[in-house]
């Protein structure tokens, strides 16, 4: 139990009248890699966005690394410093160079001296293989480079958990691989990861657990092997047949 770094208990969320998460239960252990898949509108993005409070849940409990996620802002900021997020649209800051993008949070949140932050940034950029683009601006980079820079930016905060919200859906096909490769390396390095994606090849290679969501509920939760070999629910079978 104490190994569980994320606990979601009976979590429900409404957008106005529409219930987007219905009594979701989820446990994530440290160093676990989970892939969440499902049709669009199933609530998968909302699920992970609740973990770092980009969305607020109305019912249930979410506990991240021992701290409960409520409207208490101190807790929210504490949790956000330990949880990194990578977005579908990259969301790099266009007015800052790549290295400044990465160093921004360490300087202002962790109060790191500028030099140290920049060294840290260069280290992370090295890890994602774009250190030669460090001084460039996001507008001058390709999509794949931008997403890798976004990953480096999140890693600079030394998070314990990395959330990925459809990280390759906005990329041209030839750039998807470079980003997935970086994510695979990250997984091998022992990071706890929750990835919302359609890339089943990646899932098969990296995920410990597969989660299938539909209409706000977790329909099936299984180990990767089980999931692909023996999907239990009909909806899962239908989804897999459409995707694979």
């Amino acid at each position: 139990m104490s190994d569980q770094i994320i606990q979601m208990q009976q979590v429900s969320k409404w957008f106005g009248d529409f219930q987007v998460l219905k009594d979701v239960n989820l446990e994530v252990s440290s160093k676990q890699k989970i892939v969440v898949c499902g049709p669009s509108g199933s609530g998968k993005s909302t699920l992970i966005r609740c973990i770092n409070r980009l969305e607020e849940h109305q019912k249930g409990k979410i506990i991240v690394d021992g701290t409960e996620l409520t409207e208490n802002t101190k807790n929210i900021e504490k949790i956000r410093a330990e949880v990194g997020m990578v977005f579908q649209q990259f969301n790099l800051f266009p007015h800052l160079s790549v290295v400044d993008n990465c160093a921004l949070a360490p300087i202002w949140v962790k109060k790191m001296p500028k030099k140290k932050a920049e060294e840290l940034a260069m280290e992370q950029l090295e890890q994602v293989h774009i250190v030669d683009q460090a001084k460039k601006f996001p507008g001058q980079l390709s999509g794949g480079q931008q997403q890798r820079a976004a990953i480096a930016r999140a890693l600079c905060m030394k998070p314990k958990i990395m959330l990925f919200d459809e990280p390759t859906s906005a990329l041209d096909p030839e750039m998807i691989k470079e980003v997935l490769d970086v994510m695979v390396e990250l997984a091998k390095g022992g990071m706890t990861m929750i990835v919302v994606t359609h890339e089943m090849g990646f899932a098969k290679e990296v995920a410990d657990q597969m989660i299938f969501m539909d209409e706000g509920m977790i329909v099936e939760k299984a180990s990767t092997k089980e999931f692909f070999a023996n999907p239990k629910s009909d909806r899962t079978k239908l989804f897999l047949s459409q995707i694979l």
């Binding site: 977005f87 266009p94 905060m157």
Partner: peptide, 30 residues
């Protein structure tokens, strides 16, 4: 200034005041 900018800054742990000063205002002022 796209919504994603504020979300990305928030997810990095920046406070609302910092987000305004470092991310939103520079882009909005331009």
């Amino acid at each position: 200034v796209g919504k994603g900018q504020k979300e990305a800054a928030a997810s990095l742990g920046l406070t609302p005041a910092q987000i305004l000063k470092l991310v939103v205002m520079p882009q909005a002022l331009r």
